[in-house]
């Protein structure tokens, strides 16, 4: 019963997300509205963590599998990809790693700066 209730709550929030996606003319999908709604419900104690925890974490843990069918679908995209494949490949690879490097380094730099300041204060 517990899992059914949890799943019902999660699907209900997904449903609200769908409704917002339908009503608000922005390219924001149901899942993004849903994350924000569930987070706010938990943070403002509207629902307790125990009301979604096990089923929610189970869904998160099997999420990787859900990307397989769409990715296999790339074999059908090859015809449109082919004429510019070199540009696409280079841009996708370079840009992905640059984003990873810069966002990681900036975050880490600011965290370490904060830690240094704190250490000085305590010294």
């Amino acid at each position: 019963m517990k899992y059914i209730k949890q799943f019902a709550i999660i699907t209900f929030i997904s449903l609200i997300g769908e409704a917002l996606n339908h009503l608000i003319p922005l390219p924001v999908p149901a899942s993004i509205y849903g994350v924000v709604i569930l987070f706010c419900c938990l943070e403002f104690k509207i629902i307790p963590l125990s009301a979604v925890k096990e089923t929610g974490l189970f869904l998160v843990s099997i999420m990787q599998i859900m990307f397989i069918p769409a990715t296999v679908g790339l074999i059908d995209t090859w015809d449109v990809f082919a004429p510019n494949w070199l540009a696409y490949t280079v841009i996708i690879i370079l840009s992905t790693f640059m984003v990873m490097l810069i966002s990681g380094k900036v975050t880490q730099g600011i965290i370490r700066l904060g830690k240094k300041k704190e250490a000085k204060k305590n010294a």
Partner: peptide, 9 residues
């Protein structure tokens, strides 16, 4: 979609 929603946890 429900799985993505649960990333809030």
């Amino acid at each position: 979609t429900p799985a993505t929603v649960c990333l809030a946890i």
